[in-house]
Design a binder for these strands. Structure first.
Lengths: 196, 196
DNA sequence: CGTCTATTTGAATGTACTCAAAAGCGGTGG
DNA sequence: CCACCGCTTTTGAGTACATTCAAATAGACG
């Protein structure tokens, strides 16, 4: 389990920030506690996205199905991470991808409207979120670099090293779809690594 | 040329925001006007990054040189865009990549410290920047999806469609290094497309 | 025209994919 | 406890796509 527990006040999401009693109540009123079972979809392709999820426990992924029917995993989400279809959430447009539960999960859910309300009334949350966004931005940049400069085997090793907890929580075919390779290729890569 | 001119007040960078006279003076004092010639490097690999650039005119790119000596273009920057090594800039760490001028450029330069000062004294700038960051975040997400789901030819067509202005401003070998393919492959792809 | 840089072409190679089939694993019910 | 089922991973053979290295053109500019 992560640092934040589902029974704590939602304000615990913003780790390191301290709040007044009124602020804590406001934050509490904007987040909804949600539990979701393996296989459930929180966001569906082509629907309007106005929700974002903070993961207390469990594992989720966002993925896209391309014109050939192949799934591509954009992001995995585990405890203390946020997940949504950000492209759609930020622009209030329709989802390019779906978000599904891989392992039973406990979540804090918030709508865009409520998020904006929190930003407005508690500006330090906006500052905090900008910092998180910057970190996520930088890690996306690194991921792009890994597609540009590494072969499948090196990308896999890099993934395992960077996200050991995720590697343990998901199926190999999910990892393959995150790395941009087929299940068969990942299997052969793992075999090669094991032999060395 | 873009909407913002180098002779305008720096506050023009934040398109759509209106400022008081005092705010305009503060913003002006934090940005420095810089001109840079083709070939110049604004950020060098392995050096501390504390500057970010708003591009008024010209063209730049950020790129990484991998362990085999190959260059990979992370981002192109043209007028009205920001460029830096964000990974390093956000974390005040050393550059993973370099930023070089592809076409003579006019820029507004700002340090991290001055940026933070502006955020603190003019909060609406921080809100504005968060919005920009979200847009950039979403476009990175789309780019990752393109590496996962498209072959080289489709990625190229996608690039040309999405960034026609950039395609005109840069060499093919830069485009190849952005798409994650070799110059030779891009040449063959362009030939195929031309024939069809 | 000559030089430097950028692009194209060719042939051989390599990496990852496709499709099909087999093996492994985990849970359920008899 | 074992047999079966569904799901996941592995293996194999053939193929496709992109790379490598080397050489030939094409363009830009003085």
């Amino acid at each position: 389990m992560g640092k934040v527990k589902i029974h704590e006040p939602a304000s615990a999401i913003f780790e390191g920030l301290s709040f007044t009693r009124e602020e804590i109540i406001l934050i509490e009123s904007k987040f909804e506690r949600v539990t979701a079972k393996k296989g459930e979809r929180l966001i569906d392709f082509n629907t309007i996205v106005d929700k974002q999820y903070f993961i207390v426990s469990g594992c989720l992924r966002s993925f896209h199905i391309d014109s050939n029917g192949r799934e591509h995993t954009i992001q995995f989400g585990i405890e203390d991470w946020w997940i949504s279809d950000y492209t759609a959430f930020f622009s209030a447009g329709k989802a390019l991808m779906s978000v599904e539960v891989i392992q039973d999960a406990e979540l804090f859910e918030i709508t865009k409207k409520d998020r904006d309300h929190l930003y407005k009334h508690i500006p330090k949350i906006e500052v905090y979120v900008r910092g998180k966004l910057e970190t996520a931005f930088a890690s996306f940049q690194k991921r792009i670099l890994s597609y540009l400069s590494l072969n499948a085997s090196a990308r896999y090793l890099n993934f395992v090293k960077s996200y050991p907890q995720i590697e343990q929580s998901v199926k190999n075919y999910h990892i393959a779809s995150y790395l941009g390779i087929t299940t068969e290729s990942l299997s052969r890569i793992r075999k090669e690594i094991a032999q060395a």
